[in-house]
Amino acid sequence: MDNQNNNTKKVLMICLGNICRSPIAEAVFRRRIEQLGKTNDWLVDSAAALVGEHTGKRPDKRALNILEKNHFCYDGRAGPITKDDFFTFDYIFGMDKPNMISLNKMKPKESKAQLLMLGDYGLPVDDKIIVDPYYLSGEEPFVKVYDQCVIACAEFLKQFYNAT
């Protein structure tokens, strides 16, 4: 955070428990801004929207495996979204409709955060929901989450930079 400037944009990735989708999305977004040479322009984090039972825990082993296979080193731990986050972050991305419903209920009226569904960026209409892979077996659902995040993060940043 020491390299932030007044124009730093802040992004918070949200999923149910902050152990699967949002850590993957956080890591992917970070990688994309590195590739664009825009690391100093962004602060990226992740949190849980509904379930705080994983607070302080590492991401699911399958999420970590997918990140490792794609040459990411992720050392974050799960944490809950707070009321302050709606004033701190410019963009808060949910992964599915229940995330978005929860975020909209929690968002204070006077907050600055834009609530967006990550899958609305670059994903086909029938694949916009980034499904929670936690209760699904194997790593394949985590691969799909990763692939969706790669596309969506790249498309959001493409649209962001073409609009500014």
Rank of each mutant, 00 (worst) to 15 (best):
D2W: 10
N3R: 15
N5E: 06
N7W: 11
T8A: 07
K9A: 11
K10Y: 03
K10Q: 08
L12C: 08
L12M: 07
L16P: 00
N18R: 12
N18H: 09
R21A: 11
R21F: 08
S22F: 10
P23N: 10
P23G: 04
I24K: 01
A25L: 06
A27F: 10
F29W: 09
F29T: 07
L36A: 08
G37V: 11
K38D: 03
N40H: 09
L43I: 08
V44C: 06
V44D: 03
D45W: 06
D45E: 12
L50Y: 08
G52K: 13
H54P: 00
H54G: 08
G56P: 03
R58L: 14
R58S: 13
P59D: 04
D60C: 00
E68I: 04
N70Y: 03
F72T: 00
F72A: 05
F72C: 00
C73K: 15
Y74G: 11
D75M: 13
G76M: 12
P80A: 06
I81E: 03
T82I: 00
D84M: 09
D85H: 15
D85Y: 02
D85T: 04
F86W: 06
F87I: 14
F87T: 09
F89N: 02
F89V: 00
I92C: 08
I92P: 01
M95F: 11
M95L: 15
D96F: 04
K97H: 13
N99G: 12
M100E: 07
M100F: 12
N104M: 13
K105V: 09
M106Y: 13
P108T: 13
K109W: 06
S111F: 04
K112F: 11
A113R: 08
L115Q: 05
L116P: 10
L118A: 13
L118Y: 10
L118H: 13
P124K: 11
D127E: 14
P133G: 07
P133C: 05
P133M: 01
G138H: 01
G138S: 01
E139Q: 10
F142V: 02
Y146A: 05
Q148E: 04
Q148V: 00
V150S: 04
A152R: 12
A152P: 06
C153L: 11
A154P: 01
F156G: 04
Q159K: 12
Q159P: 00
Q159L: 07
Q159G: 03
F160L: 12
Y161D: 00
N162Y: 02
A163E: 15
T164Y: 01
